[in-house]
């Protein structure tokens, strides 16, 4: 931008400096606690109590080994993926199927089903917890990963169906009509034509639901009761509470890092898609 007078230029410089100072401060506030945890996770217990600012004398990789094995973070990680991956897959599949039909077919009840799904977004999960617990108990799937998967899928449906229905409405009809003329049956049409066309929407919803499930705490807390079935967030909270009885501070810091880093790294690689995937809920919600 060109400026004529020098007072303007000076003002411009001052404003820019203030902006950079402010942005830099927030960067430090955001990043510093994370860096501190990462550095601390390499210290010994003794060093942790000595001073929070001291760098570790040597890198204690053993902290990570203990966190993964003795503190079961490795097991919790496997449990998390065992629950989340099938949940995402079936959420996307079922929502795409439902969304496609709701977007493309006229039939009595179409609107009712669509609004029934939307209504689900109004309710807080807290309200369903108690009946959900007893429902799973009577179905004999309480404290199983299978039960949690069904619940995760069910609670991811409202928004995913809502989003994908909108998405399928934007797919041009002539592509679909051309496929019908070519003799594709309904299933070929859906899996070979429609799904590939909806790729972007599915990726957004995959990311959105993945982070939602990764973040989920209350559902596993209520529905998984044996500690060998815990998912990551639950396991970490459990460790945190256990910490009061058995002190392995360095192991706990290592556990935080193990839980924190994978999503952070994936985010740095796919930042654009992830920012879009996560904010999509608020942008057209």
């Amino acid at each position: 931008m060109e400026r004529q007078g020098s007072p303007n230029k000076l003002l411009e410089i001052i404003i820019n400096t203030v902006i950079y100072l402010f942005l830099a401060s927030w960067t430090i506030i955001v990043v510093f606690p994370m860096l501190w945890v990462i550095v601390t996770s390499f210290k010994t217990d003794k060093e942790i109590f000595l001073s929070p600012w001291q760098l570790p004398a040597q890198l204690m990789w053993d902290n990570f080994v203990r966190a993964l094995t003795k503190a079961n973070i490795g097991l919790y990680l496997v449990n998390s993926l065992t629950v989340i991956l099938p949940s995402i897959f079936f959420t996307l599949l079922f929502s795409a199927m439902a969304g496609y039909v709701l977007a493309r077919y006229e039939f009595p009840g179409n609107r009712i089903i669509f609004y029934a799904f939307m209504g689900g977004m109004l309710f807080p999960v807290m309200l369903a917890l108690v009946p959900l617990f007893f429902l799973l108990q009577s179905m004999k799937i309480i404290d199983t990963h299978f039960g949690l998967i069904l619940v995760y899928i069910a609670y991811s449906l409202p928004f995913t169906v809502f989003f994908l229905t909108g998405f399928f409405k934007t797919i041009p009809s002539d592509l679909i009509e051309a496929a019908i003329i070519d003799g594709a049956n309904n299933y070929q049409l859906f899996f070979l034509i429609v799904i590939p066309l909806a790729q972007n929407g599915l990726v957004s919803m995959g990311i959105f639901n993945f982070l939602g499930m990764w973040n989920q705490y209350i559902l596993p807390l209520v529905l998984l009761t044996s500690s060998d079935k815990y998912v990551l967030s639950q396991g970490l909270a459990f460790l945190q509470h256990q910490q009061r009885y058995q002190s392995d501070w360095s192991g706990l810091f290592a556990a935080i890092v193990i839980v924190m880093l994978p999503t952070l790294i994936v985010y740095v690689i796919f930042q654009n898609q992830i920012q879009r995937g996560l904010t999509v809920g608020a942008l057209k919600g």
């Binding site: 960067t27 982070l211 973040n215 967030s233 970490l236 924190m260 999503t263």
Partner: peptide
């Protein structure tokens, strides 16, 4: 950078 805390689970953030 400012988006970092969004991709860490709330439990990790709480413990941290």
């Amino acid at each position: 950078t400012f988006f970092f805390p969004q991709v860490i689970s709330i439990i990790s953030i709480g413990v941290l």
